[in-house]
């Protein structure tokens, strides 16, 4: 769809805004609606929009499929890693209270990191799905 001038100009403007909104939803999930899952989908949709407007081939040169696959696994590992840190500190799996000196700060850190893990996995999974389903 490279010949659609209006679409490509609008996409150029809107893609950074979508990414910014995705990051907002990711890190504002503690205070408003949202969280890792929604943020991941929104962040991935900016890449998918790029792929639709400028072609899958060009998207493949922007995001390396191998790196995206590794990131999908990394998100899950980050989540599990937080749980394992809880065990190493002498608590239960996914016990965030021990991550910091006070339990409240520990909870904040734990929730922030696991939401980041969820976001990374979901965003990468959506991009991988788009690569798999889109016509090469």
């Amino acid at each position: 769809m490279e010949h659609h001038l209006v679409l490509s100009v609008v996409a150029r403007i809107i893609i950074p805004l979508i990414m910014l909104f995705g990051l907002y939803v990711q890190f504002h999930g503690d205070y408003g609606p949202g969280g890792g899952f929604q943020a991941g989908v929104i962040f991935a949709s900016s890449f998918i929009l790029y792929g639709i407007i400028f072609g899958v081939k060009k998207l493949r040169s922007v995001v390396n499929p191998t790196i995206v696959r590794c990131l999908a696994a990394f998100g899950v590992l980050l989540y599990i890693g937080v749980g394992v840190v809880g065990i190493l500190k002498g608590g239960e799996f996914l016990n965030y209270n021990l991550l910091s000196k006070t339990s409240e700060v520990g909870q904040h850190i734990g929730i922030m990191i696991i939401e980041l893990g969820v976001g990374i996995t979901v965003a990468s999974a959506m991009i991988i799905l788009f690569f798999a389903f889109a016509k090469p």
């Binding site: 503690d30 205070y31 969280g35 965030y96 339990s103 909870q107 904040h108 734990g110 929730i111």
Partner: peptide, 15 residues
């Protein structure tokens, strides 16, 4: 008291 973040949904889902 236990989690200390305003969005209850996030505290239930994540913690």
């Amino acid at each position: 008291k236990e989690i200390g973040i305003p969005n209850l949904v996030t505290s239930v889902l994540a913690s």
